[in-house]
Write a protein that binds this DNA or RNA. Structure first.
Lengths: 189, 189
DNA sequence: AGTAATAGCCTAGAGGGTCTAGGTTTGAGA
DNA sequence: TCTCAAACCTAGACCCTCTAGGCTATTACT
């Protein structure tokens, strides 16, 4: 019988696609094996276990998102850059809910360092260059921005904003206005 | 043989405690049944299924947190109130990681309405009364605040802030300063 | 007090998932 | 052509969810 040609990379890709379809929590090694026309046990020569698979999806998603954000950021600065970053982030989360959920798995330090997480931090810092901020304010701002983006996207997904007629997109762009304002006028410690 | 005295409420309580111990995702009907000295199948006369159990934990956590926030808010206004709310939120999330995770399950509209979610929204609006904001800005602010709180707490938990020496508590209080500033000076549309 | 109804608990078991141990096939290079 | 490691397999242990159907303790009513 012909080989299915499974590799860890293909598994991660397939798992990511499946996650976007059925939800990150519902991705199973079994379902993946079925997809490749192979027995469950076979996959364990490519991945250590389910957690390992999930981490691979997280790393993949982190890199994909970093690429998108980098593209969105090209040639922009100041508020333009802020808005481009934020929208790239939110759009990715909406288009790839499973991948986005994967990004929330806790990575062990080694994996985190070798992942695209550093690029995300760098790019956020790049935005802040338009705002005349120095350390440690910069770090505080990076944390605030990331928190707000993630929080908004994540509450939007679980339906936390459904109980007001106010359009979610409008609130989002007002939130970006507010972030821009606070970065331009960062309060002294 | 004596009855174990299982009720849906006790199950939700036990599930919440277990969630804080082993993580919300790892709460199983089986483990719960073992805790009560009862067979798995017996629990299904009290809960519909695992999802139902999780929703009950979410509702429980929502109510508990609302109580805490209400207590923290009593007699405060303006920035004091903002900080008290935020800290009550973050403290609860840290003390009860499992319960906090439960709060992120998607509730169907009926459950959401009958839950304490409304109280949370009301209390956030109460804070904003110290800031001279009217609709629809108020709704935008509620969303921004909630997003930032949730985002920060949630990134902190998965270790997103571990890669800078800057103390997480300090960044947090600077974020609250920033939110206060932006609420006092909410940018026009 | 006697009885009927109900709620709480049980056994049995189907079905699906993770993961290990150990065996067989395949393909690429010596 | 032979070798050997990688890719895949079977078998099976173990845990989990949830249904069906049955027994029993408690409660509620006559």
């Amino acid at each position: 019988m012909a080989r299915a040609g499974v590799t860890a990379e293909r598994l991660a890709q397939a798992a990511a696609d499946l996650a976007d379809e059925v939800g990150f929590e519902n991705v199973t090694v079994s379902a993946l094996a079925r997809g490749f026309g192979v027995k469950d046990a076979s996959l364990y020569s490519h991945i250590r276990n389910l957690h390992d698979l999930r981490v691979r999806v997280a790393v993949l998603a982190l890199a994909e998102l970093a690429d998108r954000v980098a593209a969105a950021l090209a040639g922009r600065e100041g508020k333009d850059a802020l808005v481009a970053f934020a929208n790239a982030y939110r759009t990715y989360a909406k288009e790839h809910p499973g991948r986005y959920a994967a990004m929330q798995v806790e990575l062990d330090p080694a994996t985190a360092v070798s992942s695209a997480a550093g690029r995300h931090a760098e790019m956020t810092r790049a935005i802040l260059r338009g705002y005349e901020l120095s350390e440690p304010d910069q770090t505080d701002c990076v944390r605030l921005l990331h928190s707000t983006f993630h929080g908004y996207v994540s509450l939007e997904k679980v339906g936390g904003f459904r109980y007001s007629p106010r359009e979610v997109d409008v609130s989002w762009s007002r939130a970006l206005d507010a972030l821009d304002a606070v970065l331009r006028n960062w309060p002294p410690a």
